[in-house]
């Protein structure tokens, strides 16, 4: 990428009205492995593809449980994500402490959005190099939020960020209408299918490289929630197997389309 005169700091606009440092931060998000989030009437799920830096290393942490009612998945600089997740943990604990209430998701996401925005307006600061998908439930039901280094946050029905996430997004767009009425299992499978779409040619979904986070409501009120739960390793086998079988059919369909 070429250098120009307007990318030395995050407080200077280019004549075209761009802030390059913020755009570069968004590039960092695209370097991270892909994460997918989907929400239905009853559940919100996060599905992530984990990478290991080298054969000998462990797989990175892609999904973090924040509080009983929410968790996040990250794409980009993991250390920046940890700073944000620590902050979110503090915020949710203090909400429970001062009001005895699970913090509303929109408020929590806004608070990290505001933090990220200040980084883009103060000299000497650097934008967060990470994108987040925040999934959780509150009094108004399940939610999924997207967070970008620019400080932009928005509520989504389904979303994918990270490397090659365009393929996953295409899958999500195609199946958009189905999500609303999905149960918990179906939603996870949709997430994994979307994840699989964005996989490199020689890669497969395995129990090692998949993380799943699930949260949902069981009935009315905040007492009846299915708390945010993180699944790793053998605990995701059931879903990974389902997708592995399912895609053979899908692949056939695809190839038939191509033939005709």
């Amino acid at each position: 990428m070429f250098r120009n005169n307007y990318d030395n700091d995050s407080v200077t606009f280019s004549p075209q009205g761009r802030i390059f440092q913020v755009e570069y931060a968004s590039e960092a998000v695209k370097q991270g492995s892909v994460v997918v989030g989907i929400v239905s009437k009853t559940h919100a799920v996060l599905v992530a593809l984990k990478r290991n830096a080298e054969e000998l290393s462990s797989y990175q942490k892609k999904i973090i449980a924040i509080d009983e009612h929410l968790g996040l998945s990250l794409a980009g600089l993991a250390s920046d994500a940890r700073v944000l997740s620590n902050f979110m943990k503090q915020q949710s604990l203090s909400s429970r402490l001062t009001y005895g209430r699970a913090i509303p998701l929109s408020r929590l996401v806004n608070s990290i959005g505001d933090r990220a925005q200040t980084n883009t307006q103060h000299y000497g600061k650097r934008p967060y190099g990470v994108g987040l998908l925040v999934a959780g439930v509150d009094e108004t039901g399940p939610h999924l939020f997207e967070f970008q280094p620019s400080g932009m946050t928005q509520e989504m029905v389904a979303c994918a960020i990270g490397a090659r996430s365009q393929m996953a997004r295409t899958y999500l767009e195609r199946n958009l209408e189905k999500f609303v009425d999905c149960g918990r299992e179906e939603l996870v499978v949709h997430g994994l299918k979307a994840l699989k779409e964005s996989l490199a040619q020689d890669k497969e979904l395995t129990v090692e490289n998949c993380s799943v986070g699930v949260v949902g409501i069981r009935g009315e009120g905040m007492k009846a929630i299915e708390g945010f739960k993180l699944f790793d390793g053998q605990n995701v086998k059931q879903w990974v197997d389902m997708v592995a079988e399912g895609t053979e059919e899908a692949a056939e369909e695809e190839s038939m389309e191509v033939d005709s």
């Binding site: 009001y99 509303p104 929109s106 408020r107 806004n110 009094e139 108004t140």
Partner: peptide, 10 residues
Amino acid sequence: SSGHTLNAQN
């Protein structure tokens, strides 16, 4: 934000 209120317990 809409839809969120503090109840008597909060």
